[in-house]
Amino acid sequence: MFHSIMGLYHFQFIQNALLSGIFIAVACAVVGYFLIGGGYTFAGHALPNIGFAGAAGAVLLGIKPVYGLFAMTILAGAAMSAGGREVRERDVSIGVVMSFALGLGLMFLSLYGGYGERVYSILFGTVLGITRNNVIFTGFMGLGAVCLVLFLFRPLLFVMFDPIAAEAKGVPVGLLTMVFLVVVAVTVSLAVQVVGALLVFTMLVGPGATASRLTHRPCRAILLAALLGVAYMFAGITLAGLSGDWPVSFFIATISFLVYMPVRIFFRGKAGRAPVSCRDIQGHMQRCFLNSREECKKRAAQC
């Protein structure tokens, strides 16, 4: 068993997957902590879906799907910052935009006609098909995102926590929210290429939500979230490599779920409504699981 695991790590494609996985896990965890705190978790769900529409549009236009992915998520992220301060009001407008984007994506796909292999790889990720260049790009961008968030750390925490008091204190709330959501968009676009649009949410919210229940200190929560994310990613890729057929994202999502559930039950916050309820995560997991099963069947049929 041990030897087969170590043997796995000798493969170049597994090394690439692990390396870019680590960068993505860290960036997602750092960004995710603020996303949860500011009540922006729904944006974390919407952005990858909007990115899928962008990728589909790019395929239709005959350009690389990645360009469409980045362009659409960044545009949508910047637009979301104008969506209002009340979580409920904001979520409704994000939801409307997201379903519009999904509709567009579907239309782009049907206009394209052929089987959109490249688009489906955006939906489900291609964790085991990552090149060295991909790793370098992901590392560069991921570290950039983390550095920017660290630079903005204090005002960003203030804005996510209490935008009204922050504004009175002279913090440029609107600008900061926009910059943050663009960083989220970049992180999402990086992660989409590895874990797929449907499972980015797991990496964004899972580790942060779990860590926020285990510690109250912001810095520790972020560090813990990053550690958890890297661990999920490592375990997911290893298990997928060992099993051969089963998708990486399935393992990552399942591990994240299995860790969050007991933490949620045993480390209950005393008061207040949780920004991400168990039901949100469960529903998301179910959808992702069904989708990935269908994808497997489809691939099997092709072979």
């Binding site: 949860i36 204090r154 209490d162 204190k169 913090v171 991400v276």
Partner: peptide, 27 residues
């Protein structure tokens, strides 16, 4: 003030916002 139970922030951090919450850099 919608203080979120799920946001990992201590009472001490909340007070700290008043001191340097508007400053850039990790602090």
């Amino acid at each position: 003030r919608t203080l979120d139970a799920n946001f990992a922030v201590r009472a001490r951090d909340l007070v700290g916002f008043g001191l340097d919450g508007h400053r850039f850099g990790p602090g």
